[in-house]
Every structure is written in structure tokens, then in C-alpha cells.
Amino acid sequence: MKVPFRKILAYLDGSEESISALMYSILLAKSTGAELHAVYVVNTKALSELVRAHIFIDQEKREYLEDLKKDSARHLRHAERLASSKDQDIIVKAIEGSPHIVIQDYVKANGIDLLAIGPVNAIRSRRDELTSENDRMLRTVPCQVLVVRDDSGIWEQFEG
């Protein structure tokens, strides 16, 4: 049977959950022959909004931008190491912007047909203000979406 996707994108946001999604994507790409991408989005939109709301001062925004860039570099290096450990090629990239918009654009520009993300929020509140970037991606990205639960099974599969 033909595999119904050719290009997988794993979204990284600096969380452990997104690393689990990446590990699952590596296993999936390895077993299907799909091309694998990983993108870390440096959320500059949130930084700008925090300055506008007077929660951050400009100096803080600059410091956090540097912190986020370092975090992205660290996570993408880790992604390369994980892929390499499974002998899987991976294309990694850090992009600045609003996460769900950056991912939409990346999916369109690169012909991605499967996006892998970490868990979406449990429905514990009806407040739209508490909607996460993962939720927004799930709703807006123009391709199939794989929501990867963060559980020890993935780590065991990966290391097994």
C-alpha cells in the first residue's frame, strides 16, 4: 500500500512534549521513507505583545529573544542528533514569527503533507484566551496533523 504522505514536519516549541513528537516523527519517517523536517519557531509575536502590554521592557525583549535563539539552536542540534542516531536525514530550521502562521507558511512553501505536534490542551477551560499554539495549528494548518501524546512508550520505542 502506498504511504499517504511524503514530507513530515515536526514542530518544536522548546517543550519536552514537542521532542516526543519529533521522536515519533523520526520513527515514522524512517519506516516510511518520508522526508523529515523540524522547525523551531521563535515566538517573536508573543515578545512584541508582551512589550505592548507593558509586561516586558525593550531590554527584556532583547534578552529573551537571545534566550529563545539559543534555545532553538539547542533543540535543533538535539533534533539532528536524534535523527542521526536512527540514520535518518532531517532538515532543521529556526524561524521567527507567530508559530501557527509560520507553520502554515512553511507547510505551503515546502509541500509538507503531515504535521506532527505535541499534545493539544485538555478541554479544561472554555476561555479562548487560553488556546495554545498547538490548538491553533491543529485548526488552521492546510495538511493532515498528527497529535503525538507525550508518554514513556515513545521514548521506549525510540531507544528500543
Binding site: 522548546g14 515566538n43 508573543a46 502590554a53 529563545l68 534555545d71
Partner: peptide, 13 residues
């Protein structure tokens, strides 16, 4: 964990 910190502040904002 800068990304998590920013997410937390954004949610509160």
C-alpha cells in the same frame, strides 16, 4: 525554559 515563560506571560496577558 524561555519559551514556557513567554507562553505563561502571554496567557496571563
Amino acid at each position: 525554559s524561555p519559551a514556557e515563560h513567554i507562553q505563561l506571560l502571554s496567557s496571563i496577558a
